[in-house]
């Protein structure tokens, strides 16, 4: 597995698209920190970028990578090795390489300009989203033999979580505004990894506003370590469940 991991890592890390990704993040975040009057404003802008771009890149890149590597994966599977090992090697190689690209592009400027809790949380969520959306991308990929269908599915998944989902939540909030929605909102948040990551950073970035909630559940959620543990737990589920499902499918799949 280590060998598979290191070959995928080397292959991906030298990929031109990933280098662009890293460079884009680097220029953008350095620019925001350097020219922006205020680092808290830069962190907010970077939050928007991380929540939008990281999932998009991960899901597209991982899906393309999977389909392009399929023939080689076939050769690997004909070797005396269980399928699960090849798959985890592929997954880890890919997500670690993309994490490194993120850490170079976003992490270095953050460490250099602003090591506030909010930006460190932001960085942590970038890493988390990388692992989660690679996992979701693999799930989309193993579920469909057709490359264009797979990439299409991946893009729809991204669009759903990045944009549509919050619109639906807003609709729910609007139509049921007469009901106590405290628990509903928390449950809805767990259904979207991007929202979970966003709320996780909010806990550090906008505590002042969030403490304006009247509900006691929210008070304890935003005021204590509970909110952090809650978000982390569900984020981990978002990583583990698609990964586990994809391994299940992959080990029973015809190539």
């Amino acid at each position: 597995m280590l060998k598979v991991f290191s070959y995928v890592f080397q292959e991906v890390f030298r990929n031109r698209m990933l280098v662009f990704y890293s460079l884009f993040l680097f220029l953008l975040s350095s620019g925001l920190f350097y020219f922006g009057a205020d680092s808290s404003k830069a962190v907010v802008s970077l939050l928007h970028v991380v929540l939008l771009v990281v999932p998009l890149l991960c899901i597209v890149f991982a899906t393309i990578h999977y389909y392009n590597s399929l023939e080689f994966i076939e050769l690997l599977l004909a070797q005396p090795v269980p399928r699960r090992r090849i798959f985890t090697g592929e997954y880890l190689g890919l997500s670690v390489a993309m994490t490194l690209a993120l850490l170079t592009g976003l992490g270095l400027p953050v460490l250099f300009w602003d090591t506030s809790a909010a930006s460190l949380f932001l960085l942590a969520m970038g890493v988390m989203l990388t692992f989660i959306f690679t996992s979701i991308a693999f799930f989309a990929s193993v579920s469909s033999t057709d490359k264009s269908k797979g990439i299409g599915t991946a893009l729809i998944i991204w669009f759903y979580y990045a944009v549509i989902f919050d619109g639906l939540v807003l609709l729910v909030l609007h139509y049921f505004s007469d009901y106590p929605l405290e628990k509903v909102v928390l449950v809805l948040t767990t259904l979207n990894p991007i929202d979970l990551a966003r709320v996780f950073v909010l806990l550090k970035l906008d505590t002042s506003a969030l403490m304006g909630y009247t509900g006691s559940l929210f008070q304890s959620f935003f005021g204590t370590i509970w909110g952090i543990l809650f978000s982390l737990f569900f984020l981990l589920l978002w990583l583990v469940i698609p990964l586990w499902l994809s391994i299940r499918i992959f080990t029973r799949k015809d190539l």
Binding site: Q10, E11, E71, P80
Partner: peptide, 20 residues
């Protein structure tokens, strides 16, 4: 899967990882 220790496979068309 250990049976595949004794099997050699040459696939029909093969795309290798390009950077390797």
């Amino acid at each position: 899967w250990t049976c595949r220790n004794a099997v050699g496979y040459m696939p029909q068309i093969l795309r290798f990882p390009e950077q390797i």
